[in-house]
């Protein structure tokens, strides 16, 4: 039992775990497809200035002679009312959508996790009830309505939209983590950690939280899609990405006036929204399978 053997053993065990997780995920071919599409979208969004045919079209650019062209070889998705390339603008539009989703999730998830863990683990009834009733109040208001109100009250820009949606999103995670935590709270392994003398913080973060990771990650992937829709909806009514910046919702709104004749201005940004949401959802399915703890 030399130390070296142990170490190679651990590396091996880790590799086995990773390949096992990947195996479970990849048993669902649609999830792999979703992941592939998402990776392409994310790479395209990051590299947008280098790979789009007309990067300058993402800003205040006009070229009226080229306006209103249907899809062709020079403009895959056609051009909009002022002659900008819709394909380039869609790719740039992904940047805003993905940025919104990432910022919202990374603000709301940690907040929801912390409050959910505390509410689920604490033995002080008033603290648990306090946190959960506040959560319920937030959940009772439709997110679109409140986000609309907040964004309208402040000024309509992407940053405010992010803050408004984040404020609406943490209660879902709080409730999810709360429900898992309060059911695990009386499991023997939690009791054992308490009896051993582990600190509360350690028990919540190291003992309980790893058991919440599956549902949280699954929900995150699904929520990325929802946040993108919500962002696009707010943009659609003018409370998000402001022109001339290419928000996907803004582009759909602009093009909607030209339907049905100049359909490409609306359909391609809309399809882009559908594609990214679909791929997130497919990944979510795969993750759910992956995190299912196998029972013996």
């Amino acid at each position: 039992m030399a130390g070296k053997d142990m170490k190679s053993n651990r590396v091996y065990a880790k590799r086995v775990n990773i390949s096992k997780s990947w195996y479970k995920f990849s048993r669902n071919p649609l999830s792999v497809l979703g992941l592939t599409v998402l990776i392409i979208i994310v790479l395209a969004a990051i590299l947008a200035p280098y790979i789009t045919p007309y990067p300058e079209h993402a800003g205040p650019y006009t070229n009226f002679p080229e306006s209103g062209q249907p899809p062709n070889l020079r403009h895959f998705f056609g051009t909009d009312t002022v002659g900008r390339d819709v394909f380039s603008r869609v790719i740039f539009g992904y940047r805003f959508s993905l940025l919104l989703a990432v910022v919202v999730i990374s603000l709301s998830v940690p907040l929801g996790i912390i409050l959910g863990l505390i509410a689920g683990y604490t033995k002080r009834k008033w603290l648990e009830i306090g946190i959960m009733r506040i959560t319920d109040i937030f959940l009772a208001v439709p997110p679109l309505v409140l986000a609309l109100a907040i964004t309208a009250m402040l000024s309509p820009k992407l940053l405010n939209q992010m803050m408004a949606i984040s404020l609406m999103w943490w209660p879902w995670y709080c409730r999810l983590v709360y429900s898992v935590t309060s059911s695990l709270r009386n499991e023997y392994f939690v009791h054992d950690a308490e009896l051993t003398g582990a600190r509360k913080g350690f028990i919540m973060i190291r003992s309980i939280l790893p058991n919440c990771v599956g549902p949280i990650l699954t929900k995150i992937t699904l929520d990325m899609g929802f946040v993108i829709i919500l962002g696009a909806s707010l943009s659609f009514i003018g409370l998000g990405v402001q022109p001339p910046k290419p928000g996907l919702g803004t582009m759909v709104a602009d093009g909607a006036k030209r339907l049905p004749a100049e359909w490409w201005m609306t359909v391609f940004p809309a399809l882009a929204i559908v594609l990214v949401i679909l791929s997130f959802n497919l990944i979510g399915d795969g993750l759910r399978d992956m995190f299912a703890v196998e029972e013996i």
């Binding site: 065990a13 499991e187 023997y188 392994f189 009791h191 054992d192 950690a193 009896l195 003992s207 790893p210 058991n211 990771v213 703890v293």
Partner: peptide
Amino acid sequence: RIVFQDPGSSLNPRWS
């Protein structure tokens, strides 16, 4: 110290 009745729930499933 204690050894619990149900070894299934006394060991954290996410810990090696």
